[in-house]
Design a protein around this nucleic acid. Structure first.
Lengths: 194, 194
DNA sequence: GCATAAATTGTCACAAATGACAATAAACTA
DNA sequence: TAGTTTATTGTCATTTGTGACAATTTATGC
């Protein structure tokens, strides 16, 4: 009846390009033209497929949150059987063969920071955050049965804060030091559950 | 001989307004007109006194870093004699009668995040960060003589990361929960030094 | 009052980002 | 082939942010 729609694929291509742009320039500094250039799709088409700027930001939040949840679950699965004490540090800092996490993190963080200006972004990010905390809390409880629920929740929230905090500092000369330290910090925090 | 210069005062008024704008809108989303309106100084005068946009950003970094260092030293002095285990949580979370910290934090954080696009901002922020870490490390060593230097540095860096991390999440519905948790987290981290 | 240097106001041009939309081309089905 | 839907290209008007600068006003010392 009609020409086949490529909307879905183009949309993900656009979102993927948007994520890369955010990592380079930040959210506000990324224009539709930047996204167009990065994705190889003309600005008109970007608008055609993804809508106006606000739409784009809201959609990229959905995209990033979903991707992040997916990657997280994969990593979690892959290292579920690791009995080592620093399994979490491994998952968060070491095990990222394709760099999936690292690629997504700046966009995730930029969206968190911009959330107060985009209600829907705030909703979605909160949702993702909560899922993350809940998952991590559960895993911590299983690995540290003696520790209470409160302690596990506290540490889970803390680990995530520390993990995301790094990205806020990536512009500093200290960034590597901070990341390295955060890794030790996670281990130190986990040790308080024993 | 000539009309007396008000450059210095106007400059600080502009910087102060810039800081408030950053807290509301973010760094990139703040225009010269926004600063003009917030400060009650016309855009032309803002340019006259503070220069172009890049100048403004660089100067606000100096301003924020200096203010932050000043406030930090004051708070540190005021609570130096506190022997309580959670003196640090008090300094960071409780003791902020005028809200000086809270008012400055969003701008500080926004500048950290934007540092990778502004070399001079990166320099100044790094400097401030390092001073902060050094100070805190020293204080921790005095209060926890048994703990090693490495441990103190690690915890100092961690505390600061956690503290700043909160601001990145202020757009989330979870912000209060996170801040409350971070307070406990700092206490938990300090406990590992005993 | 006069000279001087600074403050202050106002305007203009330019570039960038965005939104809107018309027009055309392409892929599919009946 | 005709008809339908979507992809694709291109252009235009508008808005906004910025830099530059001329013109004017104001406060001060002599």
């Amino acid at each position: 009846m009609s020409r086949p729609s490529v909307k879905a694929e183009k949309k993900t291509a656009i979102m993927s390009a948007f994520v890369r742009c955010i990592a380079k320039r930040g959210l506000d500094a990324t224009s539709l033209d930047d996204i167009a250039q990065e994705s190889g799709i003309s600005r008109s088409l970007v608008r055609h497929f993804a809508g106006n700027r606000e739409d784009l930001v809201n959609q990229v939040a959905d995209y990033v949150a979903y991707e992040f949840e997916t990657i997280w679950r994969q990593q979690e699965q892959a290292h579920r059987s690791d009995s080592s004490d620093d399994w979490l540090a491994t998952v968060l800092f070491t095990a990222d063969p394709e760099g999936d996490y690292k690629a997504m993190l700046p966009a995730f963080y930029a969206l968190l920071s911009a959330a107060h200006r985009y209600p829907r972004v705030s909703e979605r990010m909160t949702q993702c955050f909560e899922l993350y905390v809940a998952d991590l809390t559960e895993e911590l409880q299983q690995r540290h049965p003696k520790a209470g629920l409160d302690a596990c929740q506290q540490v889970a929230l803390g680990v995530i804060s520390i993990y995301f905090a790094w990205d806020g500092f990536r512009g500093l000369a200290l960034a590597q030091t901070i990341q390295h330290n955060n890794q030790k910090l996670v281990t130190r925090l986990l040790a308080t559950l024993n």
